[in-house]
Simulated scan of single mutants.
Amino acid sequence: MAKASEFKKGMVLEVNSVPHIVKTIEARNTSSRGAATLYEVRLNNLITQQKFDLLLKSDDQYPVLDCERAEVQYSYTDGDQYVFIRMDDYSQHPVNIEDISDELGYITEGLEGIVALIVGGVVAGLELPSSVILPIVDTSTSIKGSSSSARTKPAILCTGLEVQVPEDIALGDIIKINTATGQYMSRA
């Protein structure tokens, strides 16, 4: 059991008999004297991938689940499953496409830094690296003399993900994307 004041990003907790991963924690101090600190915790259900918010007092407790973290790499697609290979023992772990639909726009073959959360021998979720580098496969032509900090335009990446990029970015450019926000960071 862990108290809300001990929660850390990435912990796997059992909430309503279902595994949830802690995505964000924000402590809120109330203004009156002697009032308890409240913790606003955002969780992701590892089975349905739905987001779930809790507002907890520092003494509220939830069971911590045993969850193995293993570095994996995307290998291939088999029907409606993505197959990941574990980097330490090269075992294969299939994951349904709908279970990782939010992450698909960032996953490419050979992408390193993916961590699988394994509960009971099954991949319950993926943690992506903080940023990925992807090429642009479709965008409008760049405007000569445009500034990199001015207006933006849509661009489609090799994975099918659409992001907003500065106007001076051209077709074929390779860019860095923040996986948490889905926003353009810089040229690679």
Score class of each variant (00 low, 15 high):
Leu171Thr: 04
Pro154Asp: 07
Glu127Trp: 03
Glu109Cys: 03
Ser58Asn: 14
Ala150Asp: 13
Gly105Pro: 12
Thr159Met: 07
Gly105Ile: 08
Leu117Asn: 12
Ile136Ala: 00
Glu162Thr: 06
Val72Leu: 11
Ile177Val: 04
Leu161Phe: 05
Leu117His: 15
Lys144Tyr: 11
Gln92Ile: 01
Ile177Arg: 00
Pro166Asp: 00
Thr108Glu: 08
Ile136Asn: 04
Leu171Trp: 06
Val115Ala: 03
Asp53His: 15
Thr48Gly: 07
His93Ala: 04
Gly145Leu: 07
Ser147Gln: 13
Tyr76Leu: 09
Lys51Ser: 03
Ser131Gly: 02
Phe84Cys: 11
Ser101Met: 05
Glu112Gln: 14
Glu127Cys: 06
Ser58Lys: 15
Gly145Arg: 12
Glu103Ala: 07
Val83Thr: 13
Asp88Glu: 12
Phe52Asp: 00
Ile114Met: 11
Ile156Val: 15
Ile114Gln: 02
Thr141Phe: 05
Leu104Glu: 06
Ser147Leu: 13
Ile118Pro: 08
Glu109Thr: 05
Gln49Cys: 03
Arg69Ala: 08
Ser149Phe: 06
Glu167His: 01
Ala150Arg: 10
Thr159Gly: 06
Thr77Leu: 15
Asp88Pro: 00
Val163Phe: 01
Pro135Ala: 00
Glu103Trp: 07
Leu55Lys: 03
Glu98Arg: 09
Thr159His: 05
Lys153Ala: 05
Gly160Asp: 05
Ala150His: 09
Phe84Gly: 10
Ile97Asn: 08
Ala170Asp: 11
Lys153Gly: 05
Glu162Gly: 01
Phe52Tyr: 14
Arg86Gly: 10
Cys67Gly: 07
Asn96Glu: 14
Thr181Tyr: 06
Cys158Ala: 14
Leu134Asp: 06
Ile100Trp: 08
Thr152Glu: 08
His93Phe: 15
Ser131Pro: 05
Glu167Ala: 04
Val83Phe: 11
Leu104Phe: 04
Thr77His: 08
Gly110Thr: 05
Ser75Phe: 08
Arg86Glu: 13
Asp53Glu: 14
Ala170Tyr: 02
Pro166Asn: 06
Gly125Pro: 05
Gln61Glu: 15
Gly172Trp: 02
Phe52Val: 02
Glu98Met: 08
Val119Asp: 11
Asp102Lys: 09
Lys153His: 08
Asp173Tyr: 00
Ser130Arg: 12
Leu128Tyr: 07
Ser148Ile: 10
Leu134Phe: 10
Arg69Val: 00
Glu71Ser: 12
Glu71Tyr: 15
Ser130Met: 00
Tyr106Arg: 09
Lys153Met: 04
Asp88Asn: 12
Ile156Gly: 03
Glu109Gln: 15
Tyr82Ser: 04
Pro94Lys: 12
Glu167Asp: 01
Val119Glu: 09
Ala170Ile: 01
Ile107Gly: 01
Arg69His: 13
Leu55Ser: 03
Asp173Met: 03
Glu109Phe: 14
Ser147Asp: 12
Ile107Thr: 00
Pro166Phe: 01
Ala155Gly: 07
Glu98Cys: 07
Val64Phe: 11
Ile136Met: 04
Val132Pro: 06
Leu65Arg: 15
Ile133Met: 04
Ser58Val: 07
Tyr106Pro: 07
Val83Ile: 15
Thr139Ile: 11
Val119Trp: 10
Leu134Asn: 05
Ala116Asn: 12
Gly160Ala: 01
Gly125Lys: 11
Met87Asn: 10
Lys57Gly: 12
Ile97Ala: 10
Gly145Lys: 09
Gly110Phe: 07
Leu56Val: 03
Ala116Tyr: 08
Leu56Cys: 00
Glu167Tyr: 08
Asp53Ile: 06
Val132Trp: 02
Thr159Arg: 09
Thr179Ile: 02
Tyr82Cys: 12
Leu128Pro: 06
